[in-house]
Simulated scan of single mutants.
Amino acid sequence: MAEIGMRIGIDLGGTKIEALAIDEHGIELARHRVDTPRDDYEATIKAMVALVHRMEAETGKTGTVGAGIPGTISRVTGLVKNANSTWLNGRPFHRDLMATLSREVRVANDANCLAVSEATDGAAASVRFVYGVILGTGCGGGVALEGCVHDGPNGVAGEWGHNPLPWPKTEESPGPACYCGKNGCMEMWVSGTGIALDYKTVTGRARTTREIVADFAAGDQAAAETVERFEDRLARGLSNVINILDPDVIVVGGGVSRLEHIYDALPKLLPKYVFGGEASTPVVQAKYGDSSGVRGAAWLWPNKRI
């Protein structure tokens, strides 16, 4: 089996596309990002291809290509589904990207990429069963088994963001409307969007999640109550993940993962909700932060061809 040299990862986000080239040891060789051409499918493909060519021109090497997307490829149709970057849905993204690049490309959900990244050389390096959580504008989840993506026959393994909030209180039912067409999804409670919505619903004041977190750090009571509700909901949601999957570790990425208080709060809250009253599952912050997705996309190609 031939060794793989340079790997190129591309992380397709709602506002930016980031590309990263690493060598076989995970050392960064080049990195670039561009704005995402929102609502323009053809321009999105062209932007990703241009980034690959730029990385290869800059390094003088040809690399394997992996891409992380905010959705999944249907095994039935070969088309994108479940993407909150909705202009991708129903499109043959994988086929079009490979045809435009004239080579094989591996594509995975961005949360799966985070899990692979952290299982390979991140906060969960060499851990067998890693559950990756993205808490950003939205809320995603993915699974890495022995460093490889596990997505299941429907491509939705670990996708907890569109499960309902467990054990909802009266004031939490039916919950906010989600873009997926349902109400009360985890995404609408524990994402950055959900935290800001909860604060506004309770206080009547509009604040960004970043501002709420800053207010919390400064001792503001309304912000503290918002964070307390968020952490309790996060614990309820993750308790279901533990009850069903019982992963060896949960790694949290995305912008909300920077709220360090959650890593003290969750170990205390999870036993209240996990079946049996025990929850020794480590919950840790992603080592590579916002770069976990793009690194995981690069690591979709393992050290040996399979």
Rank of each mutant, 00 (worst) to 15 (best):
K268T: 15
L165E: 03
Y41G: 11
A265I: 12
E18R: 07
A157E: 01
T62W: 02
I17Y: 12
W189E: 05
C139W: 06
G237E: 03
A222N: 04
I306C: 12
E172W: 10
V80R: 02
I134Y: 09
A265S: 12
A50M: 10
G122P: 14
I45D: 01
G237A: 11
T203M: 06
L12S: 07
H53D: 05
I45W: 06
L29I: 00
A217F: 13
E24N: 10
V284P: 13
A144N: 04
E211M: 02
A177K: 10
L135K: 04
H32M: 08
A297T: 03
D40I: 12
Y131L: 06
M55Y: 02
C178L: 10
I17R: 02
P267Y: 04
A177E: 15
A99I: 01
G155S: 00
G296A: 07
H94R: 10
V256P: 03
G71T: 03
S74G: 10
V80W: 01
G140F: 05
Y179W: 15
T193D: 07
D11S: 08
H162T: 07
P282Y: 09
E231K: 09
V249D: 08
Y288P: 06
V284A: 07
I73L: 11
G138K: 10
A177G: 12
G276L: 11
P164F: 06
E118V: 07
R236C: 09
K46R: 09
V283F: 03
T64H: 10
V52H: 00
D290I: 06
I306F: 05
V116D: 01
I8T: 00
T170A: 15
A297E: 11
P164Y: 14
K304R: 15
L51H: 02
N303T: 03
V251N: 02
E42L: 09
S292I: 09
E3T: 12
M188Q: 14
D220W: 13
L266A: 02
T44A: 13
N303C: 06
S280D: 15
G9R: 00
A124Q: 02
R210G: 04
D264Y: 10
T201A: 11
R233T: 07
I195Y: 09
C139F: 13
Y131W: 11
G181T: 09
V127H: 09
I69Y: 11
N243Y: 03
G66S: 09
T36Y: 00
G204N: 03
D264C: 03
I244C: 09
I134P: 04
G219T: 12
D264Q: 11
D220E: 15
A125K: 13
T201W: 15
L79V: 04
L270V: 05
K200P: 06
A124R: 00
S291L: 13
K46W: 09
V130D: 05
D39M: 13
E278C: 08
G138P: 00
V133H: 07
L79N: 11
G277M: 05
T208G: 12
D232H: 13
E56V: 09
A177C: 06
G132A: 14
V65Y: 01
I134R: 05
